[in-house]
Design a protein around this nucleic acid. Structure first.
Length: 491
RNA sequence: GCCAAGGUGGCAGAGUUCGGUCAGACGCGACGGCCUGCAGAGCCGUUCUACGCCGGUUCAAAUCCGGCCCUUGGCUCCA
């Protein structure tokens, strides 16, 4: 039985849904800039939840939006050639984000809806809210009346009277209550907003972003309403899981609940899961601070498995600190796991693996690892403890290999399967993945050099052999001399 | 100011729901040994009296209660 921490109640609750289907909505990214490791942490933990629920037999319907209508996006129009419209800028960064997601080995969502293609649904939702008396028009904008919705503030434990005004100062005069929030904003993006978000002044007329026709005139959808409209369109009026960054609890998710439940009279989401923020030693990772480390850079430098292992070093609900040391630890953990996996595969496939050999310690270790992994994941997705269970299995495999031949074929086979099911399928790590075309040539060449080096070693020319090893290492090819010959690894 | 999440070893990070079996989980690092031409990997072992502070309840507190300190996030359409 899986349990998760529900922000709605603040408690860890057992996860129960009707039937096998899980409706999962993830508050995605505003495509106004390159994605950094903080954004990816949310995608990653949504991916792990998706994978684990699938592992436990659920049919996960995962929807994750891209916000492609936003002041920050509009503000960048004209910054580069080809960025003629808000849609151009959004398309550019959407493409990059998708590339990042592929690089991170994330399971695909069922759909990645964009705000720009859901304006009719948004307008319908806003109209419903106006008709039901939860929203009102003012100067061509439409605002949600927070006093009309009973229970506003329940998610974030905010008391209405304590709330300060939401939104920009210039819209406050249009609102009945300072805490009311915009569902629809009249006209295009204001010059002030463009100035605020513009990366640098590049001359030319200030962009206003796209606008759409509405019953209240030309305008743009508010931020909060998009998630309600898109999740209802692609999933249902009631979601099983709504996931997002902890920084969105208030006001974004609070507002989503208010407008959704006001419109449908049904519970909006049963489980609210909030992912903690990624921090550096000094600051929160935020594009506004400019100290971010992009996903693309991290993948280049460390590779997907080390990045994923880094994320697997801390539970989703807490914050995580990014540092060079943390990445080094991730690298150590990943390499230990990968080596043990390869060692298990090699031993399993060797002629010395026998049908009647039996190592009870190894077999028991496989059972233990599976049990501990499952228990840790079921317990609020405790990925680090689960990973440690795999590392313990790595130790058992290594001990078995150290004991020498004959190898316990069945035991090793079960160990390999455990690594693949848990590390591969559930964690999304690429264990034993075959390299592609160019890498094949590189590996053939490396093999050649390794053969030459072996000849030098046979001849006792260790200085020459060491030199070859050093030079291979400098190229990202590690050579390790094992009892049965050299083993080659690529960084 | 208000709301929320946190504070556990050299680092990282569980355990707190339901007090005892909990403190060196597991991992990384460090140190020593085995193995190796060397290195690496692997194995074995060692090190280190870590529960933010102060009180309270109790036979017993990392865990419950009260107060305080600190960090982070939100209240600025930032995951």
């Amino acid at each position: 039985m899986v349990s998760v921490t529900n922000t709605l109640t603040g408690d860890e609750e057992s996860f129960e849904v009707d039937g096998d289907e899980v409706l999962l909505y993830v508050c995605g990214l505003t495509v106004s800039d390159e994605a950094h490791l903080g954004h990816a942490r949310l995608w990653f933990h949504a991916d792990v939840l998706h994978r684990w629920l699938s592992y436990r037999g659920y049919d996960v319907r995962h929807v994750e939006n891209f916000t492609d209508v936003n002041e920050k996006i509009a503000a960048r129009v004209g910054e580069r050639d080809g960025w003629e419209t808000e849609a151009d800028v959004a398309a550019h960064f959407t493409r990059e984000v998708i590339e990042d997601m592929r690089g991170l080995n994330l399971k695909r969502a069922e759909v990645y809806p964009r705000v720009s293609e859901h304006v009719p649904e948004i307008l319908a939702l806003v109209e419903t809210l106006v008709e039901k008396g939860y929203a009102y028009e003012s100067n061509g904008s439409v605002y949600f009346d927070v006093t009309a919705f009973d229970g506003y503030g329940d998610l974030s434990n905010q008391a209405l009277e304590e709330l300060e005004a939401q939104g920009h100062p210039d819209e406050r005069s249009e609102k009945r209550n300072p805490a009311d929030f915009a569902l629809w904003k009249a006209d295009g993006v204001s010059p002030a907003a463009v100035e605020e978000h513009r990366k640098h002044d590049h001359g030319g007329a200030l962009p206003t972003g796209e606008t759409w026709e509405s019953p209240w005139g030309e305008g743009r959808p508010g931020w909060h309403v998009e998630c309600s409209a898109m999740s209802m369109t692609h999933l249902d009026e009631t979601l099983d899981v709504h996931m997002g960054g902890r920084d969105l609890v208030f006001p974004h998710h609070e507002n989503e609940i208010a407008q959704s439940e006001a419109a449908t009279d049904r519970e909006f989401a049963r489980y609210w899961l909030h992912v903690g923020l990624l921090q550096t030693e000094a600051d929160k990772m935020s594009s506004s601070l400019g100290n971010f480390f992009t996903v693309a850079d991290a993948l280049d430098e460390f590779g997907v498995n080390v990045v994923r292992t880094f994320y697997l070093g801390a539970q989703y609900r807490g914050d995580q600190v990014y540092s060079a040391e943390a990445m080094e630890e991730a690298e150590e953990r990943w390499e230990r796991l990968e080596r043990a996996y390869e060692s298990a595969v090699d031993a399993c496939d060797s002629p010395d693996a026998r049908a009647k050999a039996e190592d009870p310690a190894l077999r028991e270790a496989v059972d233990d690892a599976r049990e501990r992994f499952g228990a840790a994941m079921d317990d609020d997705l405790d990925v680090r403890t689960a990973y440690n269970a795999l590392l313990d299995l790595a130790g058992a495999v290594n001990r078995h290999a150290d004991d020498g031949v004959p190898y316990d074929y069945r035991g090793l086979r079960r160990a390999v399967e455990a690594f693949e099911d848990l590390g591969g399928d559930a964690f999304g790590l690429e264990l034993g993945r075959e390299a592609g075309g160019e890498v094949d040539l590189a590996s053939d060449l490396a093999e050649l050099v390794v053969e030459v080096r072996e000849a030098e070693r046979e001849a006792g020319n260790y200085e020459r052999a060491d030199d070859l090893r050093d030079r291979l290492e400098a190229l990202g090819v590690d050579v390790e001399d094992a009892d049965d010959g050299p083993r080659v690894r690529f960084d």
